[in-house]
Simulated scan of single mutants.
Amino acid sequence: MYIEHGFSTIVFAKSIGKNFYINQNVTIGTGRGGNPTIGDNVRVGANSVIIGNIFVADDVKVGAGAVLNFEVPKGSTVISQKCRVI
Rank of each mutant, 00 (worst) to 15 (best):
H5W: 11
G39M: 04
M1Q: 09
N69C: 12
F7R: 04
N53E: 03
E4L: 11
V11G: 03
G65P: 08
G31Q: 11
F20T: 13
S8P: 00
A13I: 12
M1P: 09
V49D: 00
N41P: 08
Q81T: 07
N25I: 05
S80N: 11
K74N: 15
N69K: 13
D59R: 07
D58I: 02
F55Y: 05
V11Y: 01
E71D: 11
V72D: 00
G6V: 02
I10T: 11
P36D: 06
I38R: 03
G31D: 13
C83A: 09
D59P: 00
C83T: 09
A13N: 11
F55V: 15
G6Q: 05
I10R: 00
N19D: 15
V85P: 01
A46H: 10
I54D: 03
N19G: 12
G33N: 11
V72R: 01
G45C: 01
G29P: 10
R84F: 08
T77Y: 00
K82W: 01
F20I: 13
G65F: 05
F70W: 06
E71K: 08
Y21A: 14
Y21L: 14
F70Q: 15
Q81R: 14
S48I: 01
K61T: 13
D58Y: 02
V62N: 05
G65Y: 07
T9W: 06
I16V: 15
Y21D: 11
G31E: 10
E71M: 08
I22F: 15
F55W: 03
N53W: 02
K18N: 15
V62T: 03
G29V: 01
I16S: 14
P36E: 07
Q81D: 08
R43C: 07
N53F: 01
P73V: 05
I10A: 03
V85K: 09
K14A: 06
S48T: 06
S76Q: 07
V49C: 04
H5G: 04
I86A: 09
G45D: 02
N35Q: 13
G52S: 00
T30R: 14
N53S: 04
F20M: 12
K74D: 12
A46G: 03
N19H: 14
T30F: 15
I10N: 02
V72E: 00
S15I: 09
E71P: 07
Y21K: 15
G45A: 01
S48E: 00
G75P: 06
F70P: 01
S48R: 03
S76C: 06
G63L: 04
R43A: 10
I86D: 10
Y2G: 12
Q24W: 11
P73N: 13
N41F: 13
M1E: 07
N23K: 15
I38G: 09
G45P: 00
I3L: 10
P73I: 09
R32V: 05
Q24A: 15
V60A: 04
K18F: 15
L68Q: 03
S76E: 08
F7K: 04
V56L: 04
H5M: 12
I50T: 00
Q81A: 10
R84Y: 10
